[in-house]
Write a protein that binds this DNA or RNA. Structure first.
Length: 202
DNA sequence: GTAGTGATTTTCT
DNA sequence: GAAAATCACTACA
């Protein structure tokens, strides 16, 4: 591996404690290959979901057909449908039997890949294009058919590009009704592509 | 500018 | 039958 080149994240990256993996994913690049279209985005916002100690996590209420990937080994995707119309992409962390995942909430488009749907050229559109888990999956064409995919495989993976280190900010989680007192949301304070402004206020 | 509500379908009780 | 880790649109200040 040469300095400055891209490097796909190994499975051991995901096998660490979720609260270490989540901030580490900020500033990494998410690459998808769907329908022969290769797209890359820079992750700027994530949330940690640790089933054993988190009432907001789907896995907290036990193993079901939907949450099964979270109980499996690290380095796999967990995609689910929310509110009937939006998909959310998660990265499973921690070893087999320990239910935990990191929800990818927002990312920045990388110019020079492929034109993205809904992109009308303005900077405003570009910034808000991936600012939310539902929109992110819509643009990347991630659906439940991508559930339980291997992140060390070809279709979806993360990579490190040795870019400038992001400013990581922790804040409370968004869009859930329980467990909001936990500060398990991490985002890049320098990015404008957040679903909510970076704020550490409680 | 912010605040409130409808859309829509899968999953679990 | 009810709830859900959301988004987009409308109303109003």
């Amino acid at each position: 591996m040469t300095l400055g080149q891209t490097q796909r994240l190994p499975r051991e990256f995901y096998e660490r404690p979720t609260l270490e993996v989540a901030p580490d994913l900020i500033g990494k690049y998410l690459v998808t290959c769907v329908s022969d279209v290769r797209q890359a985005v820079r992750i700027v916002e994530v949330e940690a979901y640790v089933g054993v100690d988190d009432p907001a996590c789907h896995a907290a209420r036990g193993l079901t057909e939907r949450t099964k990937p979270m109980f499996g080994p690290a380095g796999f995707t967990y995609v689910y449908l929310i509110y009937g119309m939006y998909n959310c992409l998660n990265v499973v962390t921690e070893p087999d039997g320990s239910p935990a995942a990191v929800l990818i909430r927002a990312a920045e488009p990388i110019t020079g890949i492929e034109p993205m749907p809904g992109h009308n050229g303005s900077e405003k559109t570009e910034v808000s294009l991936l600012s939310g888990p539902g929109k992110l999956c819509r643009v990347l064409q991630v659906t439940t058919s991508h559930n339980s995919l291997d992140l060390t495989g070809e279709t979806i993976y993360c990579e490190d590009r040795n870019g400038s280190p992001p400013t990581i900010i922790a804040s409370r989680r968004i869009g859930i009704k329980v467990g909001t007192q936990r500060r398990w949301r991490f985002c890049d304070g320098n990015s404008r592509s957040l679903s909510r402004p970076a704020s550490d206020r409680v």
